[in-house]
Amino acid sequence: MLELILTLCALSPQTPAAEVGEGPPPSLFRPAVAVTVEGRPLRVVSPGYACPALYDLDGDGRLDLIVGQFRSGAMRVYPGLEEGGFGSGSFLQAGGKPATVPGIW
């Protein structure tokens, strides 16, 4: 079921494509940098896709990375490190157990 939903989500529905007013100026961004954790590219639980945000969740003055996983509606939190980058992740807790958002399957 999860893979079916993800496949459906990856397909564009039968709606017009974005009506684009203008494209990007050339080279607006530098080449994409993959976020790594402990030397490896960050990956969400399979099957799934990543929905990230940065916020100082633990109040230590550094931005932490929160990544929605799709699978089970879970979120992983990667603490911002003093030396830069992010530490190993753990599932966001709510009420003493991993938070899971209903309706994501």
């Binding site: 607006l28 530098r30 994409a32 940098v33 993959a34 976020v35 990956r43 399979s46």
Partner: peptide, 13 residues
């Protein structure tokens, strides 16, 4: 095969 996702940073020039 594994259907997964990652996170990228795009720094503006």
């Amino acid at each position: 095969q594994e259907m997964t996702g990652g996170v990228w940073i795009l720094y503006q020039r």
